[in-house]
Amino acid sequence: MLKALWLAGCRLCNWLSYCNKLSDSHQINNEDALKNKLSVAASEKTKFNVIVPFSGGKDSTYALFLMKEIYQMRPLAINFDNGFRSEYAIKNLHHITNLLEVDLVTIKPDWGLMRKLYKCFLKYTGKFCTVCNAIGYLTIFNYVLQLGHLIGCSPLVVGAWVSKIEEQPDVYSFDMKYFINTIKEENNLYEELINNCFIDEDLLCALMNNPDPRVVTSYDESLIVNFIQLPDYLNWDIKKR
């Protein structure tokens, strides 16, 4: 039984009902600080100087547009396939990246493993969205780290998530320790996870020491991921982007 996700009278789940109660815009203006960070990233003589996690939705599409067309960066779009992407979303991924002439990488973990993780969370917590968050961060950050080793620097990761929408404890958690402790309830599931080629155990351990993977200041120096979110620097219209 789903304990955390329910349908309201308007046929919206509690997550969307919560979002609809928020103000339309996330007001902040710190563009000078953003430009400084992008200037440092742009100085790297590599094919890609920013990486944009890209779902094909309006926020990540806008972030990709800003990086390529407005700030003149050289972005790489990276998509995490959680097993629930719609045909429309997949078409939009390719349409937008073709339109912007941006390279796209899609990471798709083994579906058998993902099903076990979803099943485990439903069994022990009544929720499953935490799996998407945890595996999404693990796979994307691991890819960024591996790319950094190849090009000799850590590329800047530019997200488009507004923290007041992301942080919904009744729906999901960003706490990696909570994620790991939950899957350890199921025999051999943790071992199967760390044997997956998309998961780096050192990164996993570093994330477990940090309750929020979006905050990277306490990572081991060899596991630094330079990660910023555009709504922390720019005005962001939550419903219209």
Rank of each mutant, 00 (worst) to 15 (best):
E186L: 07
M176T: 13
E192Y: 03
E186M: 09
T182R: 08
T130E: 08
S163P: 06
D170K: 11
F128V: 11
T182M: 11
C120Y: 08
I199C: 00
C153H: 14
L117V: 12
I183G: 07
I194F: 07
I183E: 09
I194K: 02
Y143C: 04
V158C: 00
N142G: 10
K123A: 08
T139P: 06
I194T: 04
S173D: 12
E192H: 04
V171T: 14
F141L: 05
S173I: 07
F174K: 13
E166F: 11
S154G: 01
S154I: 02
G152L: 02
F141K: 05
L147N: 05
P155Q: 03
I135V: 15
G126T: 14
I194A: 01
L156S: 02
S163N: 01
L117Q: 07
F141N: 10
C129R: 13
G159M: 09
L117C: 11
E185K: 15
I183K: 06
E185P: 00
P169Y: 10
V131K: 00
Y190M: 08
G159Y: 04
H149K: 14
S154D: 01
E192V: 03
I199E: 02
L147T: 03
M176R: 10
A134C: 10
D175H: 15
I165W: 02
I151L: 05
N142K: 09
I183F: 14
G152E: 01
S154M: 04
D170V: 09
T130N: 08
L122W: 13
C120V: 12
C129V: 11
G112K: 10
L147M: 13
L138D: 10
F198T: 00
P169F: 06
N188Q: 13
F121D: 08
L145Q: 09
F179T: 06
C153R: 06
G136R: 03
G148N: 05
G136N: 08
G159W: 00
E192P: 02
V158Y: 01
F198Y: 09
N142M: 08
I165L: 14
I151D: 04
I165N: 06
M114E: 05
E186V: 06
L189E: 05
K123Q: 11
N133C: 14
K177N: 14
K123R: 15
C120D: 06
F121G: 09
N195M: 02
V157P: 02
C153Y: 13
K184S: 08
L150K: 14
G148T: 05
A134I: 06
L145R: 07
C120G: 06
C197H: 00
C197E: 10
I199A: 00
L122N: 13
E185W: 04
T130F: 07
D175G: 12
F141Q: 12
E167M: 14
K119C: 08
F198W: 02
Y190W: 10
A160I: 01
L145T: 06
G148V: 04
S154A: 05
A134N: 07
L113S: 04
V157Y: 01
F179D: 04
L147P: 02
N181M: 13
I194M: 02
Q146S: 13
Y143V: 03
S173E: 12
Q168W: 01
T125R: 15
N187D: 13
A160H: 05
Y124G: 06
N195Q: 11
V131S: 05
N196R: 00
G112I: 08
Q146V: 08
Y172K: 15
T139N: 05
K123V: 07
I180Q: 03
Y172D: 12
I165H: 04
E186K: 11
A134Y: 08
Y124T: 06
